[in-house]
């Protein structure tokens, strides 16, 4: 039994195709059927591709939303925390500045009082006769010594004041590092955007409408208003 293909190869003539391999006879219905099959296949593919593309797209969009939300949340959170820190720093600055001012005033007043007391003592001493003054010299010396002791106390206060001032200096450096700006308002025209008026006072040293007394300064943080100044305005 010979194989038909083998037979065809050794024969000289053109190959004789079997009946089922003969040129097909295509009708219009066959074309439509083939087209319908192709269409179904294409539809299936495009639908799958489209679904895949859509799911990738929606995942990407969701990721983007998530990322933006996370970023804004952490930004907001960080901003809130930083703001609270900045507010605490300015409160500390305000209190420490007030403490240093009070210390300075007390110190200055003490120095004036001391000088007055010595002056008074010496004036009183001079009112007496020469003999009385001669005999009262130990009393004067002891009184002056006493005043000297209180002068030493004053120098201890000076050191404390100096320490406070140094501390304040460090705090101001820290404020600068954190972009916090302190703005003094005394003498400036009242500005409702950055100052909160708690009253009006008669003050001839300031033009009417300018700040006569500052209770608290104004603070800016990163260029934005952090805290309004509290002021009394000249009438």
């Amino acid at each position: 039994m010979s194989h038909p293909e083998f037979t065809s190869k050794i024969s000289d003539g053109p190959p004789q195709l079997p009946a089922e391999h003969a040129n097909p006879q295509f009708g219009l219905i066959d074309v439509i059927e083939a087209f319908t099959a192709m269409r179904h296949e294409w539809r299936g593919q495009t639908q799958e591709t489209r679904q895949l593309a859509e799911s990738v797209q929606s995942t990407a969009a969701n990721l983007e939303i998530l990322q933006t939300r996370l970023a804004s949340l952490s930004d907001e959170q960080a901003n809130d925390e930083s703001r609270k820190l900045a507010e605490s720093l300015v409160e500390l600055d305000h209190q420490l500045t007030r403490a240093v001012e009070v210390f300075r005033n007390v110190e200055a007043r003490r120095a004036v009082d001391q000088a007055r007391r010595i002056e008074r003592l010496q004036a009183d001493f001079q009112r007496h006769s020469l003999i009385t003054r001669w005999f009262a010299r130990p009393v004067l010396n002891s009184a002056l010594q006493e005043l000297d002791v209180s002068g030493n106390e004053q120098s201890a206060d000076n050191t404390a004041n100096e320490g406070l001032t140094l501390l304040l200096g460090k705090l101001r450096t820290l404020l600068k590092q954190h972009h916090i700006e302190r703005i003094e308002t005394t003498g400036r025209p009242f500005d409702a955007a950055t100052m909160h008026a708690i009253g009006a006072v008669a003050d001839s040293s300031q033009p009417s409408g300018n700040v006569a007394e500052q209770l608290a300064p104004c603070y800016f943080w990163q260029g934005r208003l952090l805290r309004c100044a509290q002021v009394q305005v000249a009438r």
Binding site: P189, F190, A192, A193, M195, H196, A197, I198, G199, A200, G209, C228, V231, Q232, V233
Partner: peptide, 22 residues
């Protein structure tokens, strides 16, 4: 509400800020 030193209308916090002085 308030009128500021430039005769302009201000409202809200800014207006409240000047209430005691003006």
């Amino acid at each position: 509400v308030a009128i500021d030193s430039n005769n302009k209308l201000i409202t809200g916090t800014m207006a409240r800020n000047q209430l005691a002085a003006f």
